[in-house]
């Protein structure tokens, strides 16, 4: 039996589908990078960090000003942004949130939520006042258009962002699974009180979790400036996307965040091409609701172990 020849239209349809999936994958990697930091903090400290978008914004601006002031190439700018984001994350926890956990408040997580939300608003307003609301951009590492398989066109900077995200995600996975710090974080994720009882230094690990999360968010902000620009409110959409990723993947699950990031990237890309371009932000929320309906803990949610 002869196979029917594919028509030019079906070939085009196939090419569009492949192109959409590749673009979704490329942005999904960066989404995963955004979401994984938020999930790390939630896992370790049960804190919903609403300042996560602000850290993304700080990373974007740090990379921009580093490039502007020193002419540093993009990899140096990204590392600089990670240092800034990491330091901000560390001090946010050490100075502002630690007193909340140490106090005898009945529901500390609600206070941390308010503190991080206020921080987020303050950071956005401060950026608008001190850095001006103008859109900023620095030249990426690879601004040329690249073509994959002869039909998928994208900016080289998108590929750079994806590869950077993958490297950082791999580094995080190594940190979590093969170091004492990672073992400590996993212990805290499983049961904070239990970890505390067996001698884990909860506050030190929390500080480092915040620093790591801040560095990852800042890296995501930095690699996306050549594509999406830097501006004071750039973190607003990120915080929503990050929460979708965390809920999709499962609270406290690093692997879940990775999957959640790619799922969100694919949902947005495929939805905007095949359903409608006017609802891009909705597709992730719809998938999140469906997942919650059938898997209330998310795809890889971890239940806390009883002591």
């Amino acid at each position: 039996m002869r196979r029917p020849k594919s028509s030019p239209k079906s070939l085009l349809d196939m090419q569009t589908a492949v192109q959409t999936l590749i673009l979704g994958t490329a942005i999904g990697g960066v989404y995963a990078l955004m979401g994984v930091g938020l999930n790390l903090i939630f896992g370790v400290m049960r804190v919903a960090n609403f300042a996560h978008g602000a850290l993304y914004m700080i990373g974007g601006y740090a990379a921009y000003y580093l490039t502007l002031a020193t002419g540093a190439p993009m990899p140096v700018a990204v590392i600089g942004a990670m240092v800034v984001g990491g330091c901000v994350g560390y001090f946010v926890n050490a100075i502002l949130l630690r007193p909340v956990y140490r106090s005898r408040l009945e529901r500390p997580s609600e206070f941390t939520l308010i503190v991080t939300f206020a921080l987020s608003l303050m950071a956005t307003s401060a950026a608008a006042v001190f850095l001006t609301p103008n859109y900023r951009k620095f030249e990426g590492m690879w601004p040329d258009t690249i073509t994959l398989f002869g039909f998928v066109s994208m900016s080289g900077d998108r590929a750079v962002a994806f590869v950077t995200a993958l490297i950082l995600l791999c580094a995080l996975l190594w940190l979590v699974h093969f170091t004492d710090l990672g073992r400590g974080w996993r212990a805290l994720t499983q049961n904070r009180m239990g970890a505390d009882i067996v001698g884990v230094d909860v506050f030190r690990l929390a500080n480092l979790a915040f620093a790591t999360s801040g560095a990852l968010a800042a890296a995501a902000g930095a690699v996306l400036v050549p594509l999406y620009l830097a501006y004071p409110t750039m973190g607003e959409s990120v915080i929503v996307k990050s929460f979708v990723i965390v809920v999709l993947g499962g609270l406290g699950s690093i692997a879940g965040s990775l999957v959640g990031g790619f799922l969100l990237g694919w949902a947005e890309a495929l939805g905007s091409v095949y359903i409608g371009s006017g609802y891009t932000d909705i597709y992730g929320l719809v998938i999140m609701l469906v997942v919650l309906l059938f898997l209330p803990r998310g795809l890889f949610g971890i239940s806390e172990r009883e002591v």
Binding site: I27, L227, Y228, V273, S277, G278, Y279
Partner: peptide
């Protein structure tokens, strides 16, 4: 082609236009 005002990326839609 409508899009959400504060969206950051229209690449998938533009890619479809390019191949169409």
């Amino acid at each position: 082609i409508p899009f959400q005002a504060k969206i950051q990326d229209l690449s998938p839609v533009l890619g479809k236009l390019a191949s169409g």
